[in-house]
Nucleic acid binder design. Structure first.
Length: 260
DNA sequence: ATGGCTTGCACCGCAAGA
């Protein structure tokens, strides 16, 4: 079983790339973030024709998350939950669905804009509420995967220039503390279970030739509970689509599990 | 030098992302 996450920065613009990527990477579950479209505009039938069933929570202009599941996988449709029930939120950033007995949670964590801003306060409150909800979900599901755009680079090795980023949003100590508190619930950042190229990132700034110069951050993560982490045989960033014409600024991240 | 691109929305420029 393969799980993947990709912040597409507009599904309307990136749909052809999602379809192209799925053709050569027929993962079982693909979590998408930043759909930037309302539910009535979601390309259900196009993805169905490509062999994927769609679950989504969209909104106009901003945010929006989806879980695509390849046909043949066992979906518990009654298990679908949009948003954190412990956190009243107009923004569509979380979607949970049980697939093959795995609790898949797709997250688009808040950006936070700037340390000390109102959006930063929202980010910290959102992270606190996420922690509490994931703790509850883990009581119900031994096999849980939390994957998405965390908008937090956990460690300095996840940042191309840690000195330049010091104290900034995405790396500030309060954000990282919350990330590690979340991980301490018993979630493993499986990318780090394996040997990886030096300076591996998942996002690169559109400006200043960020991708060509590998000026990036690793903020798109796959965290798994131990029963899944133990069965994880690979986790990679696929930089291929970042080099395509009109790319998303994020690359997909894929985890392979020895299940079923 | 606090920008640099890209997107959506709406209107000819802005907010927001990271």
């Amino acid at each position: 079983m393969q799980l993947a996450t990709w912040n597409v920065n507009s599904l309307k613009v990136r749909l052809p790339q999602v379809l192209q990527w799925l053709q050569s990477n027929p993962v079982d579950v693909l979590c998408l973030q930043e759909l930037k479209l309302t539910d009535d505009k979601f390309p259900i039938t196009t993805l169905e024709a490509a062999g994927y069933r769609s679950f989504f929570a969209g909104q106009k202009t901003y945010n929006g998350v989806a879980i695509l599941v390849r046909e043949g996988n066992a979906i518990d449709t009654a298990s679908l939950v949009a948003n954190n029930p412990l956190f009243a939120d107009e923004q569509k950033r979380l979607l949970a669905l049980t697939v093959n007995g795995v609790r898949v949670i797709c997250g688009y964590f808040p950006n936070g804009q700037a340390v000390g801003s109102e959006k930063y306060q929202y980010k910290l409150a959102w992270l606190d509420a996420l922690h509490n909800w994931i703790a509850l979900e883990m009581q119900q599901h031994a096999q849980l995967a939390l994957l998405g755009d965390y908008n937090i680079a956990p460690e300095d090795r996840d940042v191309h220039d840690p000195a330049a980023w010091e104290g900034m949003v995405h790396v500030s100590p309060p954000e990282r503390e919350r990330f590690f508190k979340l991980a301490q619930l018993g979630l493993v950042d499986v990318f780090r279970q394996f040997e990886q190229p030096e300076k591996s990132y998942s996002w690169w700034d559109y400006r200043m030739m960020g991708f060509r110069r590998n000026h990036g951050l690793r903020i798109d993560l796959i965290l798994l509970t131990p029963p899944l982490a133990q069965r994880c045989t690979a986790c990679t960033v696929d930089k291929t689509p970042r080099a395509w014409e009109q790319p998303s600024d994020h690359a997909p991240v894929v985890a392979t599990l020895n299940l079923l």
